[in-house]
Design a protein around this nucleic acid. Structure first.
Length: 377
RNA sequence: GCGGAUGUAGCUCAGUUGGCAGAGCACCUGGUUGUGGCCCAGGGGGUCGUGGGUUCAACCCCCAUCAUUCGCC
């Protein structure tokens, strides 16, 4: 009765302008796009248990190669049935390659032709990530969507360095594909385009990668401190260059307005720590805008966090109680706030999918921008 | 009853030879974009226990007094 899944098959069912409504098949299920993917760096979305994720409606989550390799180790996870068996999450998982950690934990790392040498942030031990090693780790994790090792350059990196960097990222991507040919397993492999903040380098990076048979293409290296308008300009420039028949993934982005803008430009997948990290700090996204639950004005506010939300948190607790939990440093505050913020982000892409299906994405996006007028951080 | 110690921000405490009242935490307001449950930025806060004295000038020196605390009768 159930047609077998064909990992990697991407079907576009509708479009609205440049935006697409699609389905991506993976070894652990079908993902409807555009999608937001909660981040679960060490094999768990922080503060959120699997049954919470079911209530939120999460369809795919992230894990991180760098963190899981260091602790508890990819081979240990492999012996326990991969990430799905180990973490009791049987839906799709995408794993980031560790390229971004090489960037963000950059104090003690060296980038060479062969790969990235780095020191563990846990114990200072020396390690080497090659493109091949990173694929091998992600196969041990049995990731549904593996990301190639890439070099992410900082905002402000000069043109010459960035130009050399995209060549390296391309060579690494092809080495990754060489040891993991298309259709060789249920582990899909996405390439990552780079190019810093130079439109022609963004174009060149896409040209070098898109002729090869990757299962999807990511845009990396954005939202690293640049002005908002620059990111949007590069997005509008780059997304149309990507293969139309493959999923497009904007890495590490973003705010509600960023996500809607990405969808309008034709991006299919997003991930960001913002909803979960901000949840733990008391910054919450609602249908009426962003609020800081710690504020004094909520001390005796008996209303729900977001009257327009039907998540467990909003159904059950008052703003006054949530503020109290946050002020008390109670771990339950992390959970309840994370459940709410993730519900907001998942509802956001759900709403966008419905809008694309009905050809009214522009109006939907205008509604989001009206609620988050400053760009919605 | 006698002797000592201590009284400075909500809390714990610095404060030089007498020269504009300080820190940490807490509190308040922002920030947080392929996550080190972190971190960063800004802000509001004072009858220096109380009363007197000396001095151009006192948290600081002198006297008295109150409170807290420790020890001894």
């Amino acid at each position: 009765m159930v047609t077998p899944l064909i990992p990697g098959r991407f079907t576009i069912r509708a479009t609205d302008g440049k935006a697409r409504l699609g389905t991506l098949q993976t070894a652990h299920g079908v993902v409807e796009t555009p999608i937001f993917m909660p981040v679960g760096t060490v094999g768990r979305v922080k503060a959120v248990a699997p049954d919470d994720l079911a209530g939120i409606g999460a369809e795919i989550i992230l894990g991180n190669t760098y963190h899981l390799y260091l602790r508890p180790g990819d081979e240990l996870i492999h012996r326990r049935g991969g990430l799905h068996g180990f973490t009791a999450w049987n839906k799709p998982v995408l794993t980031d390659s560790g390229g971004f950690q090489a960037f963000s934990l950059s104090e003690l790392r060296t980038i060479r032709e062969n790969g990235v040498e780095f020191r563990s942030h846990l114990d200072g031990s020396q390690h080497l990530f090659t493109p091949e090693k990173v694929v091998e780790i992600q196969r041990n994790l049995n990731s549904d969507i593996m990301m190639v090792l890439d070099e992410c350059v900082a905002y402000g990196t000069p043109y010459d360095y960035t130009a050399k960097s995209i060549e390296l990222t391309t060579r690494w991507a092809l080495r990754s594909r060489a040891i993991h040919p298309a259709c060789s397993s249920g582990n899909l492999l996405f390439a990552i385009t780079q190019g810093g903040f130079f439109a022609d380098l963004r174009s060149r990076s896409v040209e070098q990668l898109c002729g090869h048979d990757f299962d999807g293409f990511a845009i990396g290296g954005l939202s690293v401190g640049e002005p908002k308008s620059l990111m949007y300009d590069l997005l509008a420039h780059t997304v149309p260059l990507l293969p139309a028949d493959k999923p497009r993934y904007l890495m590490g982005v973003g705010t509600p307005v960023d996500i809607v803008t990405g969808i309008e430009n034709g991006v299919d997948m997003f991930d960001c720590v913002l909803p979960t990290r901000n949840a733990r700090n008391g910054t919450l996204y609602t249908s009426q805008g962003k609020i800081n639950i710690k504020r004094t004005q909520y001390a005796e506010d008996d209303g729900p966090l977001d009257p327009g939300c039907s998540c467990y948190t909003c159904r059950t607790f008052s703003r006054a109680y949530l503020r109290h939990l946050q002020h008390s440093g109670e771990v339950t505050a992390f959970r309840l706030n994370s459940v709410h913020n993730l519900t907001y982000f998942l509802n956001l892409v759900r709403g966008a999918r419905a809008a694309v299906a009905e050809g009214r994405l522009a109006a939907f996006a205008a509604g989001i921008r009206a609620v988050y007028p400053e760009g919605g951080v």
